[in-house]
Design a binder for these strands. Sequence first.
RNA 1: AUGUAAAGGGGCU
Length: 268
Amino acid sequence: EYVYSALISGLYKEAKSEDAVKLWKKMDEKGFRPNTVVYSALIDGLCREGKPDEAKEMLNEMIDKGCVPNAYTYSSLMKGFFKAGVSDKAIQVWEEMQKSNCAVNEVCYSVLIHGLCEVGKLKEAMMSWSHMLSHGCKPDAVAYTSMIHGFCNAGSINEALRLFHEMICQERKSKPDIVTYNILFNALCKQNETSRAVDLLNSMLDQGCDPDVVTCNIFLRTLSERLDPPQDGREFLDELVIRLFKRQRISGACKIVEVMLGKFLPPK
RNA sequence: AUGUAAAGGGGCU
């Protein structure tokens, strides 16, 4: 099981689906009975390939054979249908999971909330958020960030910030990370609230979170598009490097220097 | 304590 699941998953991720299917057939010929993990790897692979309907058939097959789908299986399938633009079927999978005895976790909720937000169903996403809380499932950083992203895209930055402040007080697995911050930077910059974005950047540095290449791109873009006269961002990044260095954040500073070199913005 | 076969979030394109 361990080898087959790892191979199938890896082959699909490298876009070698023919090889994955060959392996699956070979496994079958050998009379090997795949378990939940192996089925889940195949279902996830089919979804990545854009074939969620085939993946759904495999779900039915595994159930017929007495194999019990779990949160991995259902979350992959939901994501697959969302990715294919068939959110109705994704929701059907969600409902099927609810009817099963499967323990729903924060990953399932993240996939659902992300998918709903992506098709503009913010209300439904918020209902899923409440559902998660009322069922005793604690949102982790990804779940929070998915909901925050949904609020930002709907223009509800204040709602997004309310969740963000909630995250700050949580335990480690629910603390905001660089992805959370980048989503907020992007939303604030796009609403011409650059100074609030810079304030948030400062508090991020205080929290011990290092900026990355996406952070740089977000700020460089606003500096060149929203500023009169436009800036190339070199000074901004130079200052960032210095501030990281002063805080002994050597690897964080190096990351920014690498970004600068990659953009032909020579650091001072 | 953490990690140890399969699933989830960010900018530009």
